[in-house]
């Protein structure tokens, strides 16, 4: 476990990995968007608005995946005291919040022509909005806390507690009658025609690679700032 705990060793891997994730991610995302906008057929009921799926669904999955990552990293931070775990959890927060926001806004835009409304307070939409506010709370908490000591543990505990919302979002359309439709893609298969499903998975792959690259960038920035802080303190002491 602690083999990757050494920040110097992490940076040796992260530095070449960042562009190796970023560029394929960007290419796949652009390919998926162009494919989705120009080369997918009209849907039987929704018409052309079906194309919004190519940004809405990847953003939703990564918004939820981001918090899952925060929760796992927070457990690792609290249990194993892994020095990089807290850094990675905090690096996920802003990208995760942005993807959750993209999911909410594109969903709202999609809702108007398909459902006839921008917003309803059903289980799925409400729990997704809660996720966005949890992200805001986490960002405020982790900004207020220093990197060391008890304060960053408060953010970690918040990250773990907030994870209870993730299965709620996932199950909301099954537990409760909702305006949002039930899941199209489950472990047992998909009810999305392959004309949409293939570019959707390209988009998910592209968004995921970009997300990973963003997290690495933010981790590198945080580690560099920690080095600066140590250096400055030492210079002040001299």
């Amino acid at each position: 476990m602690h083999r990757f705990a050494n920040p110097a060793r992490f940076l040796r891997i992260a530095k070449p990995l960042t562009p190796a994730l970023f560029w394929p991610g960007l290419v796949l995302t652009l390919v998926a968007c162009i494919w989705g906008i120009f080369f997918t057929p009209t849907e039987r009921l929704m018409g052309d608005t079906v194309k919004i799926i190519f940004v809405h669904v990847p953003a939703a999955w990564l918004g939820m995946g981001g918090w899952t990552g925060i929760a796992i990293a927070s457990i690792v931070q609290l249990v194993w005291r892994h020095p990089l775990a807290g850094v990675s959890a905090r690096a996920i927060a802003v990208p995760g919040a942005t993807f959750a926001a993209i999911c909410l806004i594109t969903g709202s835009i999609w809702g108007r022509p398909t459902w006839g409304t921008w917003w309803v307070w059903d289980g799925r939409l409400t729990s997704m909005l809660v996720l966005f506010f949890l992200y805001l709370g986490y960002i405020a908490l982790s900004n207020a806390s220093s990197d060391k000591g008890d304060t960053s543990r408060v953010a970690a505990v918040f990250g773990i507690i907030g994870a209870i919302n993730i299965p709620i979002i996932n199950r909301s359309v099954i537990w409760w009658e909702s305006q949002h439709q039930k899941a199209s893609i489950t472990l047992s298969g998909s009810s999305i025609d392959s004309a949409y499903l293939v570019p959707l998975f390209v988009a998910v792959a592209g968004f995921s690679l970009l997300f990973s690259a963003l997290v690495l960038m933010r981790m590198r920035a945080a580690l560099a700032e920690m080095r600066i802080e140590v250096r400055m303190r030492r210079m002040a002491e001299d």
Partner: peptide
């Protein structure tokens, strides 16, 4: 007083339908 449409979980191209 008002109606909202509810889409189901199936996404089918118009031609196929």
């Amino acid at each position: 007083d008002s109606l909202l449409a509810k889409h189901d979980e199936n996404y089918v191209p118009k031609e196929l339908a």
